[in-house]
Design a protein around this nucleic acid. Sequence first.
DNA 1: CATGCGAGTCAAGCTGCTTTACTCAGTGCG
DNA 2: CGCACTGAGTAAAGCAGCTTGACTCGCATG
Lengths: 163, 163
Amino acid sequence: MCHDKDVHTDDRLPEAELTFLLGMAFQLLLAEFTERLAEAGQADLRPVHGMVFQILRSEGATGTELAQRLGVTKQAAGQLVDDLEQRGYVRREPHPEGGRRKLVVLTDAAHAHLAVAGRTLHDLEAELARRTGTGDLATLRTELTQLVRAMAGDTPPPLRPVW
Amino acid sequence: MCHDKDVHTDDRLPEAELTFLLGMAFQLLLAEFTERLAEAGQADLRPVHGMVFQILRSEGATGTELAQRLGVTKQAAGQLVDDLEQRGYVRREPHPEGGRRKLVVLTDAAHAHLAVAGRTLHDLEAELARRTGTGDLATLRTELTQLVRAMAGDTPPPLRPVW
DNA sequence: CATGCGAGTCAAGCTGCTTTACTCAGTGCG
DNA sequence: CGCACTGAGTAAAGCAGCTTGACTCGCATG
């Protein structure tokens, strides 16, 4: 869980910009998360796939809706769906409201992944709460929520790669 | 600063996972930051370039060192340096300790960018502190610092794209 | 001198996305 | 009815940013 390569010696974490801290925290958490998922035998799904699953979770969505929520073009979303369909994680069904639309829905395999991922993530965050000692990651959570609200209103922005 | 496309109606920010919140917060901040930089006439430099500048800031570094700090291959780092050199932001100087090494250092243009970027980032964070009302982004900062320390020890990990 | 190592670089390839351009189903309107 | 128009999906090509593999060169060490 720790980097043992000491490529540089200065230790200026406290003075670091908020933005940097956010980036590092996110990166570390996500990396650890995906690593644990891989250990749990889910190495074939990257974070973006988990994101797709969450979006499709309740009622599915059309390709275009998916694209909007992911913040990519509909072609890119289509490629993701192609891939996931081929691997048996989603199905394209005719859309109930007809038209040229198709409804992309999750298969059982995807729901199984969501279950594992959810547990893994919760474990990770719980473990982290213990390790920081503070125990009140709740504080952190509410502060972050305020920050996000301040910048994006009530609509969660698409979560996308970062540079 | 806000997304006005309301592509979905549920509003479950509070129950969101910590990891999601971190991702959204980071993404929003970085997007706003780069946008403001672009308005300030620095549209030709992406966040990764700012990262490079910060690494080279004090004493410069060799290509390999830079690659390690960025978390990419030395070839990728070399391409970044090629690009920045061509655009006048860095120079390759012979390394004082000789060998095949070269020391990559910043030009005045890069230092100017760092100044603008630093100010922009500070303004943004200050404005955010006002808008959240809490005023104590210091709390957030220290909590994030604890989190990062808990996961990475004292060595800031390379900050890289995320999925 | 030979061997090996580490830094840098050249070249090819890949992946995930974008841009451009098209097809097709439904809608509204003369 | 015929006909433009819209919006979803798809097909194809291109591109950016990275990787892997193979190499060159400077220097240290035996």
